Amino acid sequence: MKNKRQSPGEAHSGVRAKKHLGQHFLTDENIASKIADTLVGDNYNKVLEIGPGMGVLTKYLLEKDKEVHVIEIDTESVEYLESNYLHLRDRIHEKDFLKHDLSQIFGDEAYAVIGNFPYNISTQIVFKVLELRHQIPEFSGMFQKEVAKRICEKEGNKTYGILSVLVQAYYEAEYLFTVPPSVFNPPPKVDSGVLRLTRKENFTLPCDEKLFFRIVKMAFNQRRKTLRNSLKSLNLPDNLREDAIFGSRPEQLGFQQFIELTQKIEPYAISTK
């Protein structure tokens, strides 16, 4: 049985948006439906929505042929959901997504992740999804537009950075559509953007993954320098540092070239551990 659809005004009369949680409640039913439709995979049966608030997106997810779970840190929102989504009660988890052990919910099963993400923790959410990538074949949701664009950006652009490389090493990243501030309560000061990440079939890197992460972060932490200078603290031999790739700046390299860079450095990094 489907939940009765509330009008945007009704849906947002129950819970006060809390600034410290970065809450901006979505009030546009059409956009909520469009976001729910961004999940298109058939290689999982369960979905986790982060920060459902009062369920404007949740009700559209519940129409899908998936087992929907929601994780929410705001007690007031949890109480609202428990009162208005009775058949979801056993799948409402009053936990912090960033800190909770999600195996307590899903075991080792695959699940998708979706949400209207608080701007202040959105990049942390992506980093946790990367940690859990073996169980998350699909991820979609709403970010600050600038962050969504950065995640999907390709090399050669100023906004391309750490998150772009790390995400694109494991997922196909698509920027889907832009959402104006006017469809939120309270409205944020900037546009939002919705993206979708689809995990690649071969998502295990052919190099040391910890070293790959370390090299990408080191390179972009001094993004104006060439790799020869930004990676100087690795104490690599001069003959390796003469390789042409070390004359590049990080934004010039795609994720595949960062993998190749890691493969070149790996024998020396391991020998000096």
Results as ranks from 00 to 15, higher is better:
residue 191 D to F: 10
residue 191 D to E: 12
residue 191 D to A: 07
residue 192 S to D: 11
residue 193 G to C: 08
residue 193 G to W: 10
residue 194 V to K: 05
residue 194 V to R: 08
residue 195 L to Q: 03
residue 195 L to V: 15
residue 195 L to K: 06
residue 195 L to N: 09
residue 195 L to R: 05
residue 196 R to Y: 07
residue 196 R to A: 14
residue 197 L to H: 07
residue 198 T to A: 07
residue 198 T to S: 10
residue 199 R to W: 04
residue 199 R to N: 02
residue 199 R to H: 03
residue 200 K to W: 07
residue 200 K to E: 01
residue 200 K to N: 05
residue 200 K to F: 14
residue 200 K to V: 13
residue 200 K to H: 12
residue 201 E to W: 00
residue 201 E to T: 02
residue 202 N to Y: 00
residue 202 N to Q: 14
residue 203 F to N: 08
residue 203 F to E: 00
residue 204 T to P: 00
residue 205 L to P: 00
residue 205 L to M: 06
residue 205 L to Y: 02
residue 205 L to N: 03
residue 206 P to T: 10
residue 206 P to I: 07
residue 206 P to W: 03
residue 206 P to L: 03
residue 207 C to R: 13
residue 207 C to M: 13
residue 208 D to T: 03
residue 208 D to L: 13
residue 209 E to K: 12
residue 209 E to N: 07
residue 210 K to M: 11
residue 210 K to I: 01
residue 210 K to T: 06
residue 210 K to G: 14
residue 211 L to Y: 14
residue 211 L to W: 13
residue 212 F to V: 06
residue 213 F to E: 15
residue 213 F to I: 09
residue 214 R to L: 15
residue 215 I to K: 02
residue 216 V to T: 04
residue 217 K to A: 05
residue 217 K to C: 02
residue 218 M to A: 11
residue 218 M to E: 12
residue 220 F to M: 11
residue 220 F to Y: 06
residue 220 F to T: 15
residue 221 N to M: 08
residue 221 N to C: 03
residue 221 N to A: 14
residue 221 N to T: 12
residue 221 N to S: 15
residue 222 Q to W: 00
residue 222 Q to C: 10
residue 222 Q to Y: 01
residue 222 Q to M: 09
residue 222 Q to I: 01
residue 223 R to Q: 06
residue 223 R to D: 01
residue 223 R to N: 01
residue 224 R to C: 06
residue 224 R to Q: 11
residue 224 R to S: 09
residue 224 R to P: 02
residue 224 R to T: 02
residue 225 K to W: 12
residue 225 K to E: 08
residue 226 T to F: 13
residue 227 L to M: 08
residue 227 L to D: 07
residue 227 L to F: 02
residue 228 R to W: 08
residue 228 R to P: 09
residue 228 R to K: 14
residue 228 R to E: 12
residue 229 N to Y: 04
residue 229 N to M: 03
residue 229 N to W: 07
residue 230 S to L: 11
residue 230 S to C: 11
residue 231 L to W: 08
residue 231 L to T: 07
residue 232 K to L: 12
residue 232 K to Q: 14
residue 232 K to C: 04
residue 232 K to E: 14
residue 233 S to D: 13
residue 235 N to C: 04
residue 235 N to Y: 03
residue 235 N to H: 10
residue 235 N to D: 15
residue 235 N to F: 04
residue 236 L to K: 05
residue 236 L to D: 08
residue 236 L to I: 15
residue 237 P to M: 12
residue 237 P to S: 08
residue 237 P to N: 08
residue 237 P to T: 11
residue 238 D to P: 00
residue 238 D to R: 14
residue 239 N to S: 14
residue 239 N to H: 14
residue 240 L to C: 11
residue 240 L to R: 10
residue 240 L to D: 09
residue 240 L to T: 10
residue 240 L to A: 09
residue 240 L to F: 03
residue 241 R to L: 15
residue 241 R to M: 15
residue 241 R to N: 13
residue 241 R to C: 15
